[in-house]
Amino acid sequence: ADPDLRTRIIMNEMDQAALQATVRRAALESRGNAGPSATTSIMKNANMKIAQDRAELTLEFMGHQGLGWEGSDFATEELSAVRGWLSGKAGSIYGGSNEVQSNIISKRILGLPDLTQSR
């Protein structure tokens, strides 16, 4: 019933499809290369953003049932969605923060200076 939420869900689906196509293309292009390229950092950032957005949309769609951590008032799927959302937040930290990945992108692709050395 919420057109804004519906639009954001569709946009997330489109972002996911575009990322999957990009991953397939990058895999084909990388055949024969010695190691991962800077494209890996770009895809890592994009994938994390898409996954976090999807988790947040899921919780928004669930309404107050998306607030549970434990208890019989919440279904297993609801608890799993909340824990998945929180886990996704942690994943962007232990997987290498977006700032670190963006610094790698700026140095390897754009040839910009290391931003962490100027501080």
Rank of each mutant, 00 (worst) to 15 (best):
86 L>N: 11
63 G>P: 01
69 W>I: 08
60 E>T: 09
67 L>T: 07
79 L>V: 02
79 L>E: 03
56 E>F: 13
76 T>I: 15
49 K>I: 10
61 F>S: 15
60 E>W: 08
80 S>V: 14
79 L>N: 02
80 S>L: 15
80 S>G: 14
57 L>R: 15
67 L>S: 05
83 R>G: 03
75 A>I: 08
82 V>S: 06
94 Y>R: 11
49 K>D: 14
50 I>F: 05
79 L>H: 02
90 A>F: 13
71 G>H: 00
92 S>N: 08
50 I>S: 05
58 T>N: 04
87 S>R: 07
73 D>N: 02
93 I>D: 12
76 T>K: 15
92 S>V: 07
58 T>I: 06
72 S>P: 09
82 V>N: 05
90 A>R: 11
72 S>M: 06
78 E>R: 04
93 I>A: 06
73 D>K: 06
55 A>W: 08
82 V>A: 08
92 S>W: 09
66 G>F: 01
75 A>S: 09
50 I>E: 04
58 T>R: 08
93 I>M: 12
67 L>H: 04
90 A>D: 09
77 E>R: 15
54 R>W: 07
62 M>K: 07
92 S>T: 13
50 I>R: 07
49 K>Y: 10
51 A>V: 12
68 G>F: 13
67 L>P: 02
94 Y>M: 11
86 L>P: 09
77 E>A: 12
67 L>D: 00
70 E>R: 08
90 A>Q: 07
57 L>I: 03
90 A>Y: 11
72 S>F: 03
